[in-house]
């Protein structure tokens, strides 16, 4: 009888122990794949980056040359005013021609650098970007033509004509520079918003799949709602800027005739608000992931 009981008990115990063999390890339970997709690569080619480096170095050298020529121009001009001789006039015309050339070189290099940076910047509406690039190319072409005129100017009258020719170019250069800088800053923030929004959506799906504790899930969902509200506010500010850019650059014929102006002061306030909202969103997202 004892033998039968012992056999029976060992059978039961053996069954329990052997059941452990079939228990699936906890870590082996797989969840649906939700690996974060790799972040999209920036459309920056190495050749563009190299070109930018070369242009920046060229700009630095040209600026030094301009500063030297400008000092020489001031001295020559002062001597001509004081001496009123033909020699001093000749020297003043030569110095003016030289400084006009070096200034044009600086401006051409600066605008070329701006063009490459602007072209590389994502987050700008294609229509706006194309319009500004076309205008910028036209301006660079006009500057190159202007430089040729200055180079061929050899007397006082021709120099005076070159100075007069530069007047309308000056306004276009300053307007274009302001537009490009504002749009680059806006584009960077808009691109950052787009990426943050994309990451937010992926984290939201991941969080709903991962979290099984109802209380924690509810807490995280409330956090996610706050993130979405913050991002929505940033989106509103960016839309405000976009509307302003549209009105200025792609607006009526009156605006187009003067090239359209997007000043930084015009967009700085909403841009700062959108930027701060994105900053808060990134901090919130990190907090949710680490909790």
């Amino acid at each position: 009888m004892k033998k039968i009981s012992a056999i029976f008990l060992s059978l039961v115990v053996g069954t329990i122990i052997s059941s452990g063999v079939f228990v699936t390890p906890v870590s082996a339970v797989s969840s649906p794949s939700l690996s974060p997709s790799p972040s999209p690569a920036l459309p920056v080619t190495s050749s563009s980056t190299d070109q930018l480096s070369i242009l920046k170095e060229k700009y630095r050298v040209q600026l030094q040359t301009y500063q030297s020529d400008y000092q020489a121009f001031l001295v020559a001009k002062q001597q001509y005013i004081q001496l009123q001789t033909l020699t001093s006039l000749e020297e003043a015309v030569r110095a003016t021609r030289q400084v006009l050339l070096s200034r044009t070189d600086v401006l051409i290099t600066y605008l070329t650098t701006s063009r490459i940076s602007f072209d590389q910047t994502t987050g700008i509406e294609l229509v706006v970007k194309q319009k500004e690039l076309t205008d910028l190319d036209q301006l660079l072409s006009d500057l190159i033509t202007y430089r040729a005129h200055v180079e061929s100017a050899l007397n006082r009258a021709q120099i005076a004509a070159a100075v007069a020719e530069f007047m309308p170019l000056q306004q276009r250069i300053q307007t274009m520079s302001g537009n490009i800088q504002s749009l680059i800053v806006y584009g960077k923030v808009q691109s950052l918003y787009d990426k943050t929004n994309s990451v937010k959506d992926e984290i939201k799906v991941y969080m709903n799949k991962k979290e099984t504790d109802a209380l924690r899930l509810s807490q995280k969902q409330r956090g996610m709602e706050e993130i979405e509200n913050t991002l929505q506010n940033s989106h509103g500010f960016l839309q405000e800027i976009l509307l302003s850019v549209h009105q200025s650059i792609l607006g009526d014929q009156e605006h187009q005739s003067v090239g359209g102006t997007v000043s930084y002061s015009q967009i700085s306030d909403p841009l700062g608000q959108a930027y701060a909202g994105i900053s808060r969103t990134l901090n919130f997202l990190k907090e949710i992931l680490q909790s």
Binding site: Y59, L63, Y66, Y70, F73, K77, Y80, A92, V93, T96, V99, L100, R103, V106, L107, Y110, T113, S114, S117, R156, I159, A160, V163, F166, Q170, I173, Q174, S177, I180, Q181, I184, V185
Partner: peptide, 15 residues
Amino acid sequence: SSLFFPPVDMTIALD
């Protein structure tokens, strides 16, 4: 911004 407008005199003239 890394694209500051160059510090050049835009009103150079001999007269």
